[in-house]
């Protein structure tokens, strides 16, 4: 499913604290009474749940109804599914077993509801930069709308009932994706990470659980969902994030003072402006230096928003969606280099 090019996507804009915070995400896990959780459902039940959720959203009078597109996951090609994973709209697990699953995707891709992933409904709201409250408000609004007809499974003591007991309570996972190259390099991050667990937060690589960090991208999220309200969870996470941001900024100030780091930023720019072949892993590593360069004023002629846009546009599955699903990796590497040369042509060292 290729991204609609007419509508500006959420990740193409620049949010608050974009110098460190790449994006914000809120996920709410919800379930319907009277059905087994998805891992025990048969195809007929999965289909029923998909239709019920779709109708609850698009059948009502809400202004939201026209901004969503309903897509059955098994009608999508492997490349289209991979592209949705790249854009963090669906989980790799969802893409690996598309049968009986569907998504409701908002035009600007800031909201994607996964149906029949681990839970019947997973409302996800994304935003660029730091905007936990705003993203939550949107998730809350959609949740309330769906609850009108679906009457989500709920227990006074346990809160929203979920397939995995780890999500009981609010069913909410709030997370921020942070770019932490300087605190990663000087060891600050390791010290902070060791203490995050004690205050109910977790840190992971950029593609969620079990993933390794590439290009110093880290996801910080709440761990506890039962016994703490949504509001308190968000305010805790905001405090933690603000502290990590200030540590990163301090580390960056030191790092930027070194000639070798400045040199690495400008070399990265030089490569992007000249290279004819660029693999995705090489770009992921260069991207970290470029992002710091743009954020900290070492590179002129590029905003963080257009940098994010360039990043998304050269991901492997996205390239195949745009330029042909039969592209092999060396064809993609050439195309990637071409797109990046174009995107960076007006940039210069400060």
């Amino acid at each position: 499913m290729s991204a609609n090019n007419d509508i500006k996507k959420w990740y193409e804009s620049e949010g608050e604290r974009s110098d460190v915070v790449i994006s914000t995400r809120i996920r709410l896990a919800r379930n319907l009474n009277g059905y087994p959780f998805p891992h025990l459902m048969n195809q007929a039940q999965m289909k029923e749940v998909c239709e019920k959720v779709r109708d609850a959203l698009t059948g009502g009078n809400s202004a939201l109804r026209n901004s969503f597109r309903y897509v059955e996951a098994d009608k999508l090609s492997t490349v289209a599914l991979a592209s949705l994973v790249e854009r963090h709209l669906i989980s790799p697990e969802f893409a690996s077993a598309p049968q009986g699953r569907a998504i409701l995707l908002m035009e600007d891709e800031s909201v994607c509801i996964m149906i029949n992933e681990e839970d019947h409904v997973r409302i996800q709201v994304m935003g660029s930069g730091m905007q936990l409250e705003k993203a939550y408000d949107m998730a809350d609004k959609i949740d309330t709308l769906l609850d009108e007809t679906l009457n989500f499974a709920f227990d006074e003591e346990l809160g929203y009932l979920t397939a995995c007991p780890t999500n009981l309570g609010t069913g909410m996972r709030a997370s921020v994706m942070l770019h932490l190259p300087a605190s990663e390099a000087d060891g600050t991050l390791r010290r902070v990470a060791a203490n995050l667990g004690k205050i109910g937060a977790a840190i992971r690589g950029s593609y969620g659980e079990g993933s390794r960090s590439t290009g110093a991208m880290y996801q910080i999220s709440n761990q506890v969902t039962l016994g703490i309200s949504e509001k308190d969870t968000l305010s805790n996470l905001t405090d933690i994030t603000n502290q990590i941001i200030s540590l990163e900024k301090k580390s960056r100030a030191n790092l930027l003072g070194s000639e070798s780091y400045q040199d690495s930023v400008w070399r990265a720019l030089g490569l992007l402006k000249s290279a004819r072949v660029m693999s995705s892993s090489e770009f992921a590593e260069l991207y970290s230096a470029l992002r710091v360069g743009v954020a900290e004023g070492l590179i002129n002629g590029m905003t963080l928003g257009s940098l994010s846009e360039a990043y998304e546009s050269v991901q492997p599955a996205r390239l195949m969606e745009q330029y042909g699903e039969t592209m092999n990796s060396s064809q993609r590497d050439r195309k990637r280099a071409e797109i990046l040369r174009e995107a960076f042509k007006n940039t210069d060292i400060a």
Binding site: F152, E157, T170, L226, S229, E230
Partner: peptide, 20 residues
């Protein structure tokens, strides 16, 4: 016991579903 192990002695606070 599992829920207690995961979440401590907590009871839900926060948003309630419409029905409840």
């Amino acid at each position: 016991p599992t829920i207690k192990k995961l979440h401590g002695n907590s009871a839900h606070c926060g948003k309630h579903s419409k029905v409840t």
